[in-house]
């Protein structure tokens, strides 16, 4: 695991030095500031509005970060041939994948925590209350971001980055749908659609912006189950990505 740890740090340092991270982070923070600038009817409603759309903004930010950080990692490694000396000698393919994933996941998590802090500052600036579940909600979004990151890695092993963006975004949207909504896309083949939906994640598990915005209490055990679900699904997605990667010839 030391090799994975070192390679994760290497990935983290590399991504930290790229402009992509800072660009996306700036866009999210500007969007959050923009949400707070929208005039609202009263103080209590503005609080809901800022929290609801703020958390939604952070969630979209998780998607942007996943794509911006990871969509080009493997294709670029192949194109520039930096992959060869890594895979040929010190690293196995699973170590390469995990190293890249953990590096990107750490930096994505740090960036999302910064956006959460940004949202808190905006709430404070507008003298709005900060709900206690805001940080746990951000943690759930971070886990959702890791699931998206694993999806980006999966697609990156057999598609180009321009195709990775719409595919991951499509999966992100589809995974929000209930089973009946999903079957409704192709009602003539309900069995097939049900089977496909079975393997797709249920991203609604990570959505707690509504209850937080409306002041509902969420049981701590739910956070634990949702985080466990997200981590397990990410592991599944990474294993499928690894299966694809292991089957590939590195010409």
């Amino acid at each position: 695991m030391k090799a994975v740890f070192t390679f994760s740090l290497m990935t983290l340092r590399m991504l930290f030095r790229k402009r992509t991270l800072w660009g996306i982070l700036l866009v999210i923070l500007l969007a959050l500031a923009g949400i707070a600038a929208v005039p609202s009817f009263d103080v209590s409603n503005q609080g809901r509005f800022v929290l609801d759309f703020g958390l939604f903004g952070i969630e979209v930010g998780a998607l942007l970060l996943a794509l911006g950080l990871a969509a080009n990692l493997y294709p670029r490694d192949r194109e520039t041939r930096t992959l060869m000396p890594l895979i040929a000698v010190p690293l196995s393919r699973w170590q390469y994948l995990l190293g890249r994933f953990f590096g990107a996941a750490l930096i994505q998590a740090a960036a999302l925590l910064v956006t959460c802090l940004g949202l808190m500052l905006i709430l404070l600036f507008h003298k709005l209350p900060i709900p206690g579940d805001l940080l746990p909600a951000t943690l759930l979004i971070i886990v959702e971001g890791w699931f998206l990151l694993s999806t980006v890695f999966f697609f990156s092993f057999f598609t180009s980055p321009p195709l990775n963006w719409p595919l991951t975004t499509m999966l992100f949207i589809v995974s929000q749908m209930s089973v009946s909504e999903f079957v409704g896309i192709l009602p003539s083949a309900p069995g097939l659609m049900r089977a496909v939906r079975m393997l797709l994640p249920h991203a609604d598990v990570f959505h707690i912006k509504d209850p937080i915005a409306h002041g509902f209490e969420i049981e701590p055990v739910y956070f634990l189950i949702a985080i466990f679900y997200g981590l397990c699904y990410s592991a599944f997605m990474l294993s499928v990505a690894l299966a694809v990667f292991r089957g590939r010839d590195l010409k």
């Binding site: 189950i225 949702a226 981590l231 397990c232 699904y233 592991a235």
Partner: peptide
């Protein structure tokens, strides 16, 4: 949900 997580 927990069971599905274990399955995955």
């Amino acid at each position: 949900l927990f069971r599905d997580a274990l399955t995955f």
